[in-house]
């Protein structure tokens, strides 16, 4: 079966995120004073073959651990797994 797996990768909380800080400041200068914090990460849409949704999720987790996210500085969330 074919699945589309969505992954969010974000800088780990507590680690200085200059990109997120610059975007936060830009939003403040536009008048969105209510914005407390912004973090800029990456979104990956992975189309892959697997026997089940769980197997697709497990495979993408392994891909994140091995390559897609840096275990020292980033966290990842598998946001969705859809059969396509």
């Amino acid at each position: 079966m074919k699945f589309r797996v969505a992954v969010h990768i974000l800088p780990r909380r507590g680690i200085l995120d200059p990109q997120g800080k610059a975007v936060t400041e830009a939003l403040h200068s536009l008048g969105f004073a209510e914005v407390a914090e912004v973090h800029v990460g990456r979104h990956l849409a992975i189309e892959t073959q697997a026997d089940s949704a769980d197997a697709a999720r497990a495979a993408v987790k392994a891909m994140c651990d091995k390559l897609l996210a840096n275990p020292v500085t980033e966290d990842f969330v598998i946001a969705s797994v859809e059969a396509v």
Partner: peptide, 16 residues
Amino acid sequence: ACEAHLLPGALLRNDV
């Protein structure tokens, strides 16, 4: 070398 785990830590985007 950091990505290959030959050295500890990581190099992130500069603060400026």
